[in-house]
Nucleic acid binder design. Structure first.
Lengths: 209, 209
DNA sequence: ATGAATATCACCCAAAAGGGTAATGGTTTG
DNA sequence: CAAACCATTACCCTTTTGGGTGATATTCAT
């Protein structure tokens, strides 16, 4: 059973090159080529391909918007974004919109083929440059403010539970202590973080996430 | 120039098996094996390996904490977490702590070797199961947008101010309306977002950021 | 071993938050 | 035009939160 691939790409040469290399593979076949967003939006759904290579910058639409709309109904299809740019915002917007992978143009053809396989299997194929940015997105959160470091383990735990939306009472039950103890802890947390209410404390916590 | 790899893994057999397969590669070498967290924490820094395979569950420490500490100074080293479990929280905590990759145990040896290469080159090697979860993390935000879309502009503004830590009274003053109006708006916000307090509402808001 | 930090519990009090009901005027839309 | 939605204000009531003070037991480091 071959992997069904569709291409949405307005550069005719690149589109054609992609089709050729895909059809050359034993285990995949290009079932459709689109050269603009409008026709892709109309016809992609009924084709139900396994993987779509989607250009981000089409003349008549944004590939990200297309993915956003199409993933609503095409839950079985994996979308791989292809782009010349590596704008941080676009990367995360695309992933949020429902894309499974993100390649910068100029990847060698083997990498693209490999990425189609990976997307088909449920992975998250990305160019190194993109993967690095996604990682960086997580790493950013690391910078621990001194304030937070001043909290005892119990206080950190209480703050964590507080940030999940639990009431004093619920935290007390969860930790099997009285509500007065929790109040005491929270009072200490506020003093150490120099804040006066939950929201401000949680904002301090979230700055580091 | 070979890729220098260190292993932190308390299962002696698995640790040994990893070393063997690594040393078997032409382009990499295992420069150190650690069987507990304490010694790894002490010695890893001076070894300055290119890649570290780090078990998450050590008897004497959490691999995540080790990575957190070690990445402070070892900015050139890429850490790949290895674990039997795929707890969502652990994945993101590990990535935030500074890990570059995340493998579940039981990956074939070729995948591990390939991941070391990928980490060395600055990529983000992950097991499919993990990649799926990271993607899911992004995709989650998509659903939320709908909920927020149900809010009127005024409600969105109030929620925004609320998330900054302002009291009802302060929001009322800022918008030059009475506190009762704000209470009404907030009541409507909670109903639309299906939550019961500030924190939960703000969490919904923040999930889309 | 003395003092500091931590975790625990208690009681009091005031402010803030949250839920309910009701009413008014404006806008939009079928 | 009527129905629906929106923004606004008011009043009532309960629960939750936040601040203050004080006390006890444990642990940990000087």
């Amino acid at each position: 059973m071959k992997v069904n691939v569709a291409i949405v790409e307005d550069d005719k040469n690149y589109n054609q090159a992609l089709k050729k290399i895909i059809d050359f593979q034993e285990d995949m076949i290009c079932v459709a080529q689109f050269f603009n967003g409008t026709s892709a939006l109309k016809e992609l759904e009924s084709l139900d391909p396994d993987v779509v290579l989607m250009d981000i910058q089409l003349q008549d639409a944004s590939g990200i918007d297309l993915v956003f709309k199409l993933t609503e109904t095409m839950s079985q299809t994996n979308f791989i974004m292809c782009t010349s740019f590596e704008d941080d915002d676009k990367i995360f917007t695309a992933l949020r919109a429902g894309a499974s992978g993100y390649l910068v143009k100029g990847e060698p053809m083997e990498k693209i083929i490999q990425s189609i396989q990976e997307a088909y299997k449920g992975g998250a194929p990305m160019s190194f440059a993109i993967a690095k940015r996604v990682l960086h997105h997580f790493h950013e959160s690391k910078v621990q403010v001194q304030d937070l470091a001043a909290l005892t383990p119990t206080e950190k735990e209480v703050l964590e539970l507080l940030s999940e939306g639990l009431l004093y009472k619920e935290i007390a039950d969860k930790k099997c202590v009285t509500i007065d103890t929790i109040k005491k802890h929270i009072g200490n947390i506020y003093r150490k973080l120099q804040v006066n209410n939950k929201i401000e404390a949680i904002n301090k916590l979230n700055q580091n996430k």
